[in-house]
Design a protein around this nucleic acid. Structure first.
Lengths: 141, 141
DNA sequence: TGCGATTATATCGTATGCGATCTATCTACC
DNA sequence: GGTAGATAGATCGCATACGATATAATCGCA
C-alpha cells in the first residue's frame, strides 16, 4: 500500500503549513519577525513574563529550539532574559517596550490572513477544531 | 485584534504538522529516512526518473532545498543524479534498486499513521480535502 | 546567426526543529 | 545537612526551508 502524495493527509498538512507561512512572510517581514518568533510574541502579548518552559509548552517547542530563538529576540531588543530569583534554573522572558509595541503593529495580521484563506470565519473555525483534534490524537498515540 | 495562540488556524496547522512528523519519525528511522526524503521517494515510487524541477513541483520544494537533500539520498545509495542528455540544464533523479526496495519496507506506514490518527478513513479524507482547499486558496492569494 | 532573455540547478546565509547530551539548581529523603 | 535523583535550560550536530544570488544551458527573435 503506497499512497500517492496528494492523497496523504500528512502532505496536506505539510504543504498547507508552508503555504500559510508564505502568506505570513511579507506581513512579518514588515515587523522584522520570523514566524515562530511571532508565535512566541503572541503568547507573551496574552501573558507577559513567562519561563522558557511555559512558553515551550504553549508553542510546542523545547529549549533546544527556543533558547537560540529567544536570544535572537533579545538581541533585537524585543524581550529580556533573566534567571528567576526564586528558582535559578528557570529563565524568565519579559517583553520590552519595543516588544509590547509590536502588538499594535501586528493587530491587522489575523484579518489579512483570514481574507487570504478565502474561507468564512465559521468554516475556518470548524476546520481549526478538526485539525486540533487530529493533532491531539497524534500526540497521545 | 490579537488572537490567542490556540484560536489561530495557522498554529493548528503548525502544531499538527509537527505532531504528524513525530508519529512518522520512528517509522522512518527504521528505514533511515527523514520525512521530506520519504515524500520524495513516494513521488519516485509512483513515477521513476523525474527531474529536480518535476519533483519540486510535487513536493512543493525548490532546488535550494532539494539539491542538498537529493545529494544526501544519493550518498545513501537510494537514487542516482544525472544530467539529462537532451537538456543539460536538467538533472534526472532515478531510483536505485535499494531505493525501489524501500517501497516494500514502507508499505505498512500509511496504515500505522491512520491508526494513530484516531479517525475514520472517511473523516480523514474529508479533512484532507478541506486542508488542501485551504492550502490552494492561500497559495493563490 | 548571434545575443539577450529565460530556464534549470546549485550555492550561500540565516533561522528553525529536534535528538542527544551537558550543566546548574533544586528537592527528597535519609 | 548531605547526596541521589529530578528538573530547567543550554549546547551540539544534522537536516530541512527559503530568499537571494550565481552559473550554465537553451530559446527567441531581430
Amino acid at each position: 500500500m503506497t499512497l500517492p502524495l496528494p492523497d496523504m493527509i500528512c502532505f496536506a498538512l505539510y504543504s498547507a503549513t508552508h503555504a500559510m507561512q508564505h502568506v505570513y512572510k511579507p506581513l512579518l517581514d514588515d515587523l522584522g519577525l520570523t514566524y515562530p518568533q511571532y508565535l512566541v510574541l503572541t503568547v507573551l502579548w496574552a501573558q507577559d513574563s513567562q519561563t522558557v518552559g511555559a512558553l515551550g509548552r504553549q508553542v510546542q517547542l523545547e529549549s533546544n529550539t527556543l533558547t537560540p530563538l529567544l536570544k535572537r529576540m533579545e538581541e533585537r531588543g524585543l524581550v529580556t532574559r533573566a534567571r528567576d530569583g526564586r528558582d535559578e534554573r528557570q529563565v524568565r522572558i519579559t517583553l520590552t517596550d519595543a516588544g509590547e509595541a509590536l502588538k499594535q503593529r501586528a493587530a491587522h495580521i489575523p484579518a489579512c490572513v483570514l481574507e487570504k484563506s478565502g474561507l468564512a470565519v465559521d468554516d475556518l473555525t470548524r476546520l481549526r477544531d478538526q485539525i486540533t483534534t487530529l493533532r491531539d490524537h497524534l500526540r497521545n498515540a
